[in-house]
Nucleic acid binder design. Structure first.
Lengths: 231, 231
DNA sequence: GTCTATAAGTGGATAGAC
DNA sequence: GTCTATCCACTTATAGAC
């Protein structure tokens, strides 16, 4: 990430923001998240965000130096919440070996990964934001470019490692390259979300993902047709 | 589409625009395509497009009633060029049964479909535009929403039919639901492009797509490992 | 058909009072 | 820490001259 937002006091897990400034900051971030999610980055003004948070835009700019830093904070906060559920400590502010060591079994982690697409169905605005921004960010010089490049690198590596475990422990072992499959899986989930945003009823996302994973001997926790799952 | 742009004289295949107005119109569309592709829809002004086409923005607005209709024209023109290569007459201004009947064999159509992602590598701006817009367009009321909903419906149906042919004529026949696989394939291609835009070297798109298709007994024209291709 | 001029509005950002 | 007031760049779009 090209821009460090500071030390962020009171953001350790289980810590509520104490000072008034911290609470205002959090309120702004909530509003920004909601509005960016609903309408994207370019189409939302600082004035709208500030009004939603109960301030003027000048008041908001006291807490954030500009619109771009605000976006970067929104993204990294979302990822901290969301990715902690999947890969503790990995996407946040540098890996935390202690937390990262305390992992769930591989099968459970795969279930959670697929469950994320269902989880996302409840926040279509955020899904659209990520889809829009990840395309927008590909332009050189975009404020979120480094963020997305890193995000995909980490996700590819992590999912690749997960699939590697699962392939090796399968009976018989799966021969496919886990990193190639990881890239396909990630792309599949992204692409399904794009279609789902436009026509939700036409895209059963989780079903399609499990159909893909069946090709590599992987089945959902409650398997309706194919082989039983390990747990 | 919510807004019909008119009858568009002189746009039949093999017809060059005759009048000066038609030529100017085409020049504007070329400029708009290039600039939208490079920087997206919101970030490009009519003034930039007009300047690129060698006019003022007021002159441009003589040919197009506003920015949104211009975008819709850019999209539909691109699709006419591009999809005609794949599925003649399908995505344009209504299906043309005569042209649609003159199709290539199924295997060749699949090869072309996969080749499109390689083709797209030469116009990353347009790829980014489509990715960005397809997410942006999911908001209700977006000018390009109807366009993208239709686009994905048509592509799903068409690719589903193609895969149905290939699955049935395979030895032995493939049991998978061709429409489900079509949706996965489309999503995979979209998602790969998203990652490729951010880090081209990390995403061998065509390779990944063929790896996916191998799961269903389908191989590229020059198959390095698996069974020979039919042609 | 294209221009200049201008309307009418919104954007992000700053200065300084309170 | 939040406000009002203001600045300036820039947007889409219109009116009317040439």
């Amino acid at each position: 990430m090209s821009q460090e937002p500071g030390k962020r006091p009171g953001k350790e897990p289980g810590n509520e923001p104490r000072t008034k400034g911290e609470r205002t900051r959090a309120r702004i971030l909530d509003s920004a998240t909601e509005l960016f999610s609903r309408s994207g980055y370019n189409s939302v003004s600082l004035r709208e965000i500030a009004a939603h948070a109960g301030m003027t835009h000048a008041g908001l700019l006291h807490h954030f130096p500009g619109k771009e830093p605000l976006l970067l904070e929104v993204l990294s906060r979302r990822d901290e919440d969301d990715a902690a559920y999947l890969f503790p400590g990995l996407l946040g502010r540098g890996p935390d070996p202690v937390v990262a060591a305390a992992r769930h079994p591989a099968a459970e982690r795969l279930n959670r990964l697929v469950a994320v697409v269902g989880r996302n169905s409840r926040t279509p605005g955020l899904v659209a934001l990520y889809a829009k921004l990840s395309a927008e960010a590909s332009e050189p010089g975009h404020p979120a470019r480094a963020y997305f490049v890193k995000r995909y690198r980490v996700l590819r590596a992590e999912i690749g490692a997960l699939l590697g475990e699962l392939f090796a422990s399968s009976e018989p072992p799966v021969a496919a390259d886990p990193h190639a499959v990881a890239q396909q899986l990630l792309a599949l989930m992204d692409g399904l979300q794009t279609q789902w945003l436009l026509e939700p009823a036409a895209v059963p996302m989780e079903e399609r993902v499990w159909e893909f994973l069946w090709n590599y001997g992987l089945a959902p926790p409650v398997a309706p047709e194919r082989g039983p799952v390990s747990h």
